[in-house]
Design a protein around this nucleic acid. Structure first.
Length: 581
RNA sequence: GCCGCCUUAGCUUAGUGGUAAAGCAGUGGUUUUGUAAACCACAUACGCGGGUUCAAUUCCUGCAGGCGGCUCCA
């Protein structure tokens, strides 16, 4: 019996319990999901008016479900006509909406007092369900059919496994995973904070957090310049007119900060950098000899994300994107996209992320029928989607396709990463744009003297700095690679007598970030603090070390490595910094 | 933004219708230490506003912030 079937049947039992406890409930849908199930309900208004439904009610509903399971209820499948179905669900508006779309091939499942519109399959009887291996976990609102224009229903989530032990294991794993939460680590290692006075979604980086950020920024800027990008600076503000010309305004105005009026001008904080870069390109006539024209910037951007969407450093309202726009001939697009993916894979591997393990490729396509969301130009969409698909196939990079995930101006290749809780977000992106050049009338002169329209590839090599820091902290559980560690080495003198030696040592290690722990504490305590702060190397120095110009090295997580000559240690860490390990 | 939950010191937590307990961190001492927490002392908190009550940190309510979903997304 596949677990999915049991989970789906549990969703029906949940609905059945809710029906008994709250007669008159209107039912949405209730599928099996990863690790469990849910069901969506619109509770009858009297029940809601009286006390509402809160997480305190879950044990009661769970108890009712166990009662039902004990009754050995059988699941009976029936095929019915559209008319019959409409009669059975005459008081169920959501089901009627679904029936209208199903037309024929309508099946229903009866389980005790509850009947649901459902294709199945289901278990034969509730005897197949282990009553100890499921648990209702949370109540949430969810829009009917996933559209915020529709009514919000009440969703109850449950976990379900084959055995009680598996359920417990899952809950334990979840608790374990929470230790990797970058928000928790950020607090423990003193990397970033939020202030109610500054505003939500606006992170403040501490000195240590800023070190990580600076290392990443230096790394990516140097790497991009090496690969032929022109690194530039453009302002974080622009006239709203710029975004009207670019075409972003109608698509993005809900996530833009409102217009600031000053003198005769209307300005906004930029939500993206593309039009600024287009203006740099358009500042003078361009020849084909200048292409591909690769403009890159560590670009601060501002987006008004709804408050419920903000999450630590992963979703913020002010962020810095390692952004670039490659303006090139249409014929060169595939080649450019390919070299962008080379860069992205280089960066990912330098940061320790493995393809297929830590991230996966998503080919994000448009939805042609949605002309409000996507620029109408079927030929251009076909060409661009094929180009991106072609690149991924040629690189033999496994990917999955997702409809309705593109930008309004074209399809994308998104590099998707999961956070500690398994939630997936875009880390890096490569986007094909056939709209921007038209809107700004970008052009170049080809070798025959003809004016031509280029295409634009938007891309981010390391993503938003804030977001990649979040992923790094979770990936390494705070134990960042040596080159990224805010404090790389702590020197621990055994007594005050060795402080002078420690200071000389610090001087010798001056190209590294070194701290001397000379406060009045025991050696044991200083070591504990160093370990908890995830410092890669602790150097313990006493008279024995001074005599031989050595240090006793303790490597993070590995314990005492013994006495090493200072020169040898220096050689070791120089190697380490160069290999970015 | 919507649905549900949460908010006690810098951090992690205890607790109560009669204004609150602790550990770590902090400060001042003592101690000079060999691989994950020395000892003593001191100071510090019920997110903000309104209501109920003789009395509110505790109950109700509004707001703010956070967490989990939904929507959205780099």
């Amino acid at each position: 019996m596949p677990m999915e079937t049991i989970r789906h049947s549990l969703a029906h039992i949940l609905a059945s319990a809710v029906q008994e406890l709250y007669p008159g409930t209107k039912f949405g849908i209730g599928p099996a999901i990863e690790n469990g199930f849910y069901y969506d309900f619109a509770l009858p208004s009297e029940a809601l008016a009286k006390e509402g439904l809160s997480s305190d009610d879950l044990p009661k509903i769970e108890g009712k479900m166990r009662d039902l399971i004990k009754k050995n209820i059988t699941f009976k499948k029936k095929s019915v006509s559209e008319a019959e179905a409409k009669n059975i669900f005459k008081n169920q508006p959501y089901k009627l909406e679904l029936i209208n779309e199903l037309k024929d091939k309508i099946t229903i499942y009866e389980s005790g007092e509850f009947t649901d519109l459902c294709a199945g399959p289901h278990i034969k009887t509730t005897a197949k369900i282990n009553s100890d291996a499921f648990k209702l976990t949370k109540i949430a609102g969810a829009y009917w059919r996933g559209s915020e224009k529709n009514q919000m229903l009440t969703r109850i989530y449950g976990l379900a496994f084959e055995t009680k032990k598996e359920l417990e294991n899952f809950l334990n794993l979840q608790m374990e995973a929470e230790k990797r939460d970058h928000r928790k680590i950020g607090k423990e290692l003193d990397l970033f904070v939020f202030s109610d006075l500054v505003g939500k979604g606006l992170p403040l980086f501490t000195e240590k957090g800023s070190i990580i950020r600076r290392e990443l920024e230096r790394f990516i800027v140097d790497e991009e310049i090496k690969r032929g990008y022109k690194h530039v600076y453009t302002p974080e503000l622009a006239k709203v007119e710029l975004y009207k010309v670019s075409g972003h305004y109608p698509y993005y105005k809900d996530t833009m900060y409102p217009v600031m009026k000053i003198d005769e001008e209307e300005l906004i904080l930029r939500p993206m950098t593309c039009p600024h870069h287009y203006q740099l390109y358009a500042s003078k006539p361009r020849s084909y000899k200048e292409l591909p024209f690769r403009l890159a910037e560590l670009a601060k951007q501002f987006r008004y994300e709804k408050s419920g969407e903000l999450t630590g450093l992963i979703r913020v309202r002010s962020f810095c994107l390692a952004d670039a726009h490659i303006i090139c001939q249409k014929e060169k697009a595939v080649e450019e996209i390919n070299s962008v993916l080379d860069l992205i894979e280089y960066v990912a591997s330098a940061l320790g992320f493995k393809k297929g393990v830590d991230f996966r490729y998503r080919l994000s396509l448009g939805l042609r029928t949605d002309e409000k969301k996507y620029y109408k130009d079927d030929k251009a969409w076909d060409f661009a989607e094929d180009a991106l698909r072609h690149v991924l196939k040629k690189r033999k990079s496994p990917f999955f396709e997702a409809e309705n995930e593109a930008a309004f101006y074209g399809p994308k290749i998104d590099i998707q990463m999961k956070n500690f809780a398994g939630k997936e977000e875009t880390a890096f992106t490569v986007q094909y744009d056939f709209v921007g050049p038209k809107r700004f009338d970008l052009s170049y002169t080809d070798n025959a003297g003809q004016r031509k329209e280029p295409v634009v590839i938007h891309r981010s090599s390391i993503g938003a700095i804030e977001r990649i820091i979040a992923f790094l902290l979770e990936h390494y559980a705070g134990s960042l690679p040596f080159w990224l560690s805010p404090v790389q080495i702590a020197i621990i003198p055994i007594t005050d007598k060795q402080v002078k030696y420690a200071q000389a040592l610090k001087k010798e290690l001056r190209s590294f970030r070194v701290e001397i722990k000379d406060e009045n504490e025991t050696v044991g305590k200083k070591i504990r603090e160093g370990e908890m702060q995830k410092i890669p190397y602790l150097l313990i120095v006493g008279d024995r070390e001074i005599k031989t110009k050595s240090v006793s090295v303790r490597e993070r997580g590995k314990g005492d490595l013994g006495m090493i000559k200072v020169d040898n240690f220096l050689e070791r860490i120089k190697k380490e910094i160069n290999s970015k390990k």
